[in-house]
Design a protein around this nucleic acid. Structure first.
Lengths: 163, 163
DNA sequence: TATTGTTATACTCTATAACTATA
DNA sequence: TATAGTTATAGAGTATAACAATA
């Protein structure tokens, strides 16, 4: 419908003498980027019903998990630039989902916290997230899902090394 | 340096009674999207030296592998919208890397083919792609890489089912 | 001097709508 | 009527440069 589509060739089975150049599916990096963007697209589409973007959701999740923190900490945790976090936090604050309080130990900082409204919305969103994830991972068995999660975690944890 | 960064907690080891809400790293979909975008970023950064984007590269690869095809086929194969493929193909044509020839069986279509110049450039780019991939997958063993590739292929192949 | 939050800005990627020429 | 290519356009995501307040 919208996502990915390229046909696959499970077994190359080349006629002898013909060397076909490697296709896109041969690259793990390409598959990672493409499946990853599909994952994001799927989730973004679901969040549209709540008028939120994946960045909004990630920020709410991080605040729920770690409690109050500065905007820099939050941006770093969510993986976006602090500059681009400003409008994201603005919108969440306007909707009463989080609050910016003064940090008493450092007056440059805002202590960003989740509100009760934000927490309630998050509960609803978590269910939607599980549904979306279920749809995404349908082709995999439980064991395969665990394996994929472990491998991605390994890449994610080492992330700082990339570039 | 720029990519991902969130700290991990290999073992949760909660104090009894405290239930910490699940964080972002608990979601396979999130990890997929984030590691995927890092993969794309890394590759895009490498391609910048040749003044190309990942889409340009994907198009060249697909043409090299499958030969002449229409713009729609090419777009579909690469996973981008035909509308957005127009400027991509324009730029590649301007640089003499591919050619748009009339399709004799259907005058609406362009038969897009790789030029010799395009093929030569591609040879160079393939090496760069291998290097980038090596950097990306450094944290994984050979077995783990094979496993990841297989899992992603499974998700990719089933892609049409998503959404 | 370095850091926190901010603004303004620009560029890429992706998506919606609508046109044209062919089939 | 449906399809192939195209244009214009708008939005989200990301990145560069620079600033004020504070450490």
């Amino acid at each position: 419908m919208m996502g990915m589509s390229a046909e696959r060739k499970p077994s190359p089975s080349q006629p002898p003498g013909v060397v076909e150049p490697a296709g896109l599916e041969a690259s793990t990096g390409y598959l990672l980027a493409r499946v990853g963007s599909d994952s994001r697209r799927l989730w973004a589409h679901t969040l549209l019903e709540e008028d939120l973007t994946p960045h909004h959701y990630s920020a709410l999740i991080a605040l729920d998990q770690r409690g109050a923190m500065s905007q820099r900490q939050l941006s770093h945790l969510v993986g976006i630039d602090p500059r681009n976090a400003v409008p994201v936090i603005d919108q969440l604050q306007t909707r009463g989902l989080l609050a910016r309080n003064p940090d008493l130990t450092d007056r440059r900082r805002n202590a960003v916290t989740l509100t009760e409204t934000g927490r309630r919305l998050l509960t609803r969103l978590r269910h939607a997230a599980e549904d979306a994830q279920e749809r995404l991972l349908t082709p995999l068995t439980t064991t395969e899902r665990r394996s994929l999660h472990a491998l991605l975690t390994k890449l994610f944890a080492a992330g700082g090394a990339v570039q």
